[in-house]
Design a protein around this nucleic acid. Structure first.
Length: 568
RNA sequence: CGGGAUGUAGCUCAGCUUGGUAGAGCGCACGGUUCGGGACCGUGAGGCCGCAGGUUCAAAUCCUGUCAUCCCGACCA
C-alpha cells in the first residue's frame, strides 16, 4: 500500500471537541471522523485495526466451537414485549415505527432475536450445546455519549450466546468463553484483568468483565495484590470483609441531642466531636418495590447496585426532599431509623455491629446519640451495602485491596433460564421430558477495544499500536522522494517486506521528512524503515516506535530483522 | 434529565462589549527555492458568521426562540 493513494487524513491541530486521549489521537491521526454525537465513521486505518481485532476474535471463538451468524439489527417490538424488556429497557432503546405504524427497535443486544431463532429450530438435546455469535453494529441511545469510541450510540460488538442442557453444560460453555477472552485480549497485546461483575439489567447470576487497564478508564476495579488470592472485582460488585469496631463499648441509654442545622456527616462529626465511624447514615430510596431506608456507616458510601440487589428493585432513586419530609417528618439531613415507619430498613453489615451510634432523630435540628441497632430500632434485613474502597480488607484473604482504572471491553454472563423461560425455549431430553435451555451471553465491544488499545498505548507523539492489531506493521519512509537512490532502496525494502507477508505501508508522499516522521509517530506503526543518508550504501534504518531504538542494516537483512522483532 | 460552555474558512481561533456587510495561523491549489523531525517566498481558491424570527436605514455583533456540539453532575441526608 502506498500512502500517496491511501486516505490517512492526519491533522496538525487537535479538534477542540476531543477531550479523552483515544478520541483525540484517533481523530488527529486520521482513524475516525464524527458524524453525530456518539456516531463515528471509521476510516481505512481504523478499519484495518478493526479487521485485525475481529479476526483474532473469530479465530479464538471458532477454536472453542463458536459458529458465526448475522442477526437482524432492526427488530420487531413483539420479541421485546415477550421478554419483558420493551418496557424495562427504557430510553436507551432506539425505537422506531415502520410505515404501517408497527413498533421496531435497533438492537442494543440480541438475546431476544437469537432466542427466537433457536426456539424455531431446537428440538432435541442432541442439538446441544450450541455456541452462536455475530460481530455487528449495536445501538444504544446513551444518555450521554462521550469519550469518542469508548461510549458511542452506534458501535460494533461481538456477541456470542451459548445454549446448554443444564447448569453443568453452561459452566463448560462459560469456561470456554472465559478462556477465549483471555486469549483474545492477550493476542491483541493488551494489559487486562478479568474481574467479577454485577450482571446488571441483562439479568443472570455469575458475570465477569474484562478490563483493559488504563488510568483514564471509566471503570474502577478493586483487586487483591496477593497473587495466590487473585480476588478482583468491579467496584459495583466488590466486597470487603465487614470491619467490626475495635473497642466494644457498653451500650448506653438513648439520648436526644440538639444539632441545629447540622445535616452532613462532616458537620455532625465536627459538632459532636466524634468520628464518622460512629455515625449511621440513613438514605431514603424510592423504588418500584416501595420505599427503603438504607443504613451505612458515616465513613462509608452506599453501593446502589448492592441495594438494588438486596431489595430486588429494578428502578431505584434517592427520595426527594418532599418525600423525606413526609416519611421522616423532618427536612433532609435528620433522617434516622429510630421510630421510622412506612419504610423497610436495609442495614449494612457494619451498622449491625455498631454500638452507641449517632443517627438522625426524624425531627428538625436533632439527632440521637447512643443508638443501639436491635434495641432502638429493628431492621428487616442485613446486607452488604458498602461501596468498597482501596485499602478495605479483601473478602477472601483480608489483605488490603488495591484499586485500578480500566476500560470494560468484554463481559461474560451466565443468563440461566431468564430468556428461555420468558420466551419458551425448550428441548426434549433423552427421557422425552421438555426442559428449559440454559443460556449464557458473552460480549466484546470491538470498537471500544480499539479505543482502549489507544488509551493504554500512546505517548506524547501519538499512538503506539500493539503489533497484532496495528493498521500496518511497518511504514517505509524514503526521506527525500526526489533522491532516486533513496526512492529505489525504499521501494526495495517495501517490496521485500510485502512479499514476506508483512503489513507494510510505503510513505511515498512528496512531503518533507519531518512531516512523514511526525505522521508515522502519530499513526503509531510499530516499526519504521527509513531510507535516507545511508541509502547509497544500501543501508536502511529500522526504528522501533515504542522504544525509539534504531539500527542501521542492509536492506537484505531487513525481512529477517522485522521477523525477529515480530516474534519477540 | 439538571447545570455550564461553545457554534465565524477543512482545522485551531480572533472579531461581538461600543451594529456599518469578515480576519489570522495552519491546511489546500499553482509557481519557485528547499529536503533526516510538522521549511521559506510569491500568487490564489475557499465563509447563507449553526438555523429561524425580531429590533434597526443597517446585524457575525443587540433581543427571542430553536438546533447542534462539548464539559460537569445526576442527588451520601
Amino acid at each position: 500500500m502506498r500512502a500517496s493513494e491511501y486516505l490517512i487524513p492526519t491533522l496538525r491541530e487537535t479538534p477542540a471537541e476531543a477531550e479523552v486521549i483515544s478520541h483525540r489521537l484517533l481523530l488527529k491521526a486520521g482513524f475516525i471522523r464524527k458524524s453525530a454525537s456518539g456516531i463515528y465513521t471509521l476510516l481505512p486505518l481504523a478499519h484495518r485495526v478493526l479487521l485485525k481485532i475481529m479476526n483474532i476474535i473469530r479465530e479464538e471463538l471458532d477454536r472453542q466451537g463458536g459458529q458465526e451468524i448475522l442477526l437482524p439489527i432492526l427488530q420487531p417490538a413483539e420479541l421485546w414485549l415477550e421478554s419483558g424488556r420493551w418496557d424495562v429497557y427504557g430510553p436507551e432503546l432506539f425505537r422506531l415505527k415502520d410505515r404501517h405504524g408497527r413498533d421496531f427497535c435497533l438492537g442494543p443486544t440480541h438475546e431476544e432475536i437469537i432466542t427466537e431463532l433457536v426456539r424455531g429450530d431446537l428440538r432435541s438435546y442432541k442439538q446441544l450445546p450450541l455456541l452462536l455469535y455475530q460481530i455487528q453494529n449495536k445501538y444504544r441511545d446513551e444518555r450521554r455519549p462521550r469519550f469518542g469510541l469508548l461510549r458511542g450510540r452506534e458501535f460494533i460488538m461481538k456477541d456470542l450466546y451459548s445454549f446448554d442442557r443444564d447448569e453443568a453444560g453452561l459452566e463448560v460453555s462459560y469456561r470456554k468463553m472465559f478462556e477465549a477472552y483471555n486469549r483474545i485480549f492477550s493476542r491483541c497485546g493488551l494489559v487486562f484483568r478479568p474481574v467479577e461483575a454485577d450482571s446488571g439489567p441483562i439479568g443472570g447470576s455469575v458475570s465477569h468483565e474484562f478490563m483493559v487497564l488504563a488510568g483514564s478508564g471509566e471503570a474502577l476495579v478493586l483487586y487483591c495484590p496477593h497473587e495466590e488470592c487473585g480476588y478482583a472485582a468491579n467496584v459495583e460488585k466488590a466486597e470487603s470483609r465487614a470491619v467490626r469496631p475495635q473497642v466494644i463499648e457498653e451500650p448506653r441509654p438513648l439520648e436526644l441531642v440538639a444539632t441545629p442545622d447540622m445535616r452532613t456527616v462532616e458537620e455532625i462529626t465536627a459538632f459532636l466531636g466524634v468520628g464518622p465511624k460512629n455515625i449511621v447514615k440513613t438514605l431514603l430510596y424510592e423504588t418500584d418495590r416501595g420505599l427503603y431506608a438504607a443504613l451505612v456507616r458515616g465513613d462509608r458510601e452506599l453501593n446502589e447496585v448492592k441495594l438494588q440487589n438486596a431489595t430486588g428493585a429494578v428502578r431505584l432513586e434517592m427520595a426527594g426532599p418532599e418525600t423525606v419530609q413526609r416519611i421522616t417528618g423532618a427536612p433532609v439531613g435528620f433522617a434516622g431509623p429510630v421510630g421510622l415507619d412506612g419504610v423497610e430498613l436495609v442495614v449494612d453489615e457494619e451498622v449491625a455491629f455498631m454500638v452507641n451510634c449517632i443517627t438522625g432523630a426524624n425531627r428538625a435540628d436533632a439527632h440521637y446519640r447512643n443508638v443501639q441497632p436491635g434495641r432502638d430500632f429493628s431492621f428487616d434485613r442485613v446486607a452488604d451495602l458498602r461501596l468498597v474502597q482501596e485499602g478495605d480488607p479483601c473478602p477472601r484473604c483480608d489483605r488490603p485491596l488495591v484499586s485500578a482504572r480500566g476500560v470494560e471491553v468484554g463481559q461474560v454472563f451466565k443468563l440461566g433460564t431468564k430468556y428461555s423461560e420468558a420466551m419458551g425455549l425448550t428441548y426434549l431430553d433423552e427421557h422425552g421430558v421438555e426442559r428449559l435451555v440454559v443460556m449464557g451471553c458473552y460480549g466484546i465491544g470491538v470498537t471500544r477495544t480499539l479505543a482502549a488499545a489507544v488509551e493504554q498505548n500512546h505517548d506524547e507523539h501519538g499512538i503506539i499500536w500493539p503489533v497484532a492489531i496495528a493498521p500496518f506493521t511497518v511504514v517505509v519512509v524514503p526521506v527525500n522522494v526526489r533522491d532516486e537512490i533513496q526512492v529505489e532502496l525504499a521501494g526495495k525494502a517495501y517490496a521485500a517486506l510485502r512479499d514476506a507477508g508483512v503489513d507494510v505501508l510505503l510513505d511515498d508522499r512528496a512531503e518533507r521528512p519531518g512531516v512523514k516522521f511526525k505522521d508515522a509517530d502519530l499513526v503509531g506503526y510499530p516499526l519504521r524503515v527509513t531510507a535516507g543518508k545511508m541509502a547509497g550504501n544500501g543501508l536502511v534504518e529500522l526504528r522501533v516506535r515504542k522504544t525509539g531504538e534504531t539500527r542501521l542494516l542492509a536492506v537484505e537483512e531487513l525481512v529477517e530483522a522485522v521477523r525477529a522483532f515480530l516474534q519477540a
